[in-house]
């Protein structure tokens, strides 16, 4: 396994990450999804060593983060929504100042990527827009050839053109054998790109599943409101009724009855929406249903 998180616990004020277990094999991309405040950034920051662990372990490429900090971090490429580099540095200063810390860093490649991403070498980080800061971090990460990328909402502030390029480069990195853990609100990207999906809710990892299998684990059924009400309760995650009919996320089962409905495979956005709705309406029952799948 490239990324192995075992029984990770971390308390930050009133928020807590509880017993997080996550395994991602090499060469795959895992999307970390969840509502605002679910703990995505906290989990990523803990995995990159910004927060100390209260309990559990983080092993990256088989090496323990606590005991082999330097080796582990040398293989980590980091792109955060909030740029963590000191903002008084210039683009060039970042490469010169911190590049030497990484054994695989290449200043030539850094220069090449920054040019390609439209960054001026003499520009100060604090003068860059949020999208440009993401580009800068991405360029820096690519230039030291990490085997694991930890990214927090990297595509949120990117324009369409660069977002496309971002995913192209990610594909190349995956082919090279790198592993990517990426948190994103933009589930449309993850719908197409992610191999695994991890869903965080209130500091708990509800599941980490193969995306295709995950989507096959649920069905989105559409029909008249009365039809939706007739669905067996133990199969319904949540339901939404409208003036002209409604839809419901259900657990599939072999039944002729389903032929009465219009059936779709839910996308991640729909999954997130109905899972959260189900959780609000039914509490733990929904979680039990999901865990069993």
């Amino acid at each position: 396994m490239s990324i192995e998180v075992t029984e990770l616990n971390k308390k930050l004020g009133s928020f807590e990450l509880k017993n997080i277990n996550l395994q991602i094999p090499s060469g795959y991309i895992c999307g970390l999804i969840g509502e605002n405040g679910a703990g995505k950034t906290t989990l990523l920051k803990t995995m990159m060593g910004l927060y100390g662990l209260d309990a559990g372990s983080v092993r990256l490429e088989g090496k323990d983060l606590e005991n082999r900090e330097k080796e582990v971090k040398n293989n980590l490429g980091i792109v955060m929504e909030e740029c963590l580099y000191e903002d008084y540095l210039t683009v060039e200063g970042l490469g010169k100042g911190y590049g030497f810390c990484y054994t695989g860093f290449s200043m030539e490649e850094y220069k090449k990527y920054t040019e390609e991403f439209g960054l001026s070498f003499k520009q100060k980080i604090k003068k860059l827009s949020e999208g440009m800061k993401i580009r800068l971090q991405f360029a820096f990460a690519l230039s030291h050839h990490p085997t694991i990328y930890l990214m927090d909402e990297p595509t949120a502030n990117l324009d369409e053109e660069f977002r496309k390029r971002f995913w192209e480069i990610c594909s190349i990195e995956l082919e090279r054998g790198a592993t990517i853990l990426i948190s994103s609100h933009l589930t449309e990207d993850l719908d197409k790109k992610a191999d695994y999906i991890s869903y965080l809710k209130n500091g708990e990892l509800l599941f980490c599943k193969d995306r295709e299998r995950l989507q096959e684990s649920f069905l989105l059924v559409k029909g008249e409101n009365y039809q939706l009400r007739n669905l067996p309760k133990d199969k319904v995650i949540s339901r939404e009724e409208g003036a002209f009919g409604g839809s419901a996320l259900i657990l599939p089962w072999n039944s002729e009855k389903l032929k009465e409905y219009q059936i779709e495979t839910p996308n991640l956005r729909q999954l997130m929406y109905y899972l959260a709705k189900g959780e609000k309406e039914n509490g733990t029952i929904t979680m039990e249903k999901i865990s069993k799948r």
């Binding site: 080796e71 980091i78 963590l84 000191e86 810390c101």
Partner: peptide
């Protein structure tokens, strides 16, 4: 500063 904690330095 944050950067000191995620750079590969011991």
């Amino acid at each position: 500063p944050d950067v000191f904690y995620f750079l590969p330095v011991d």
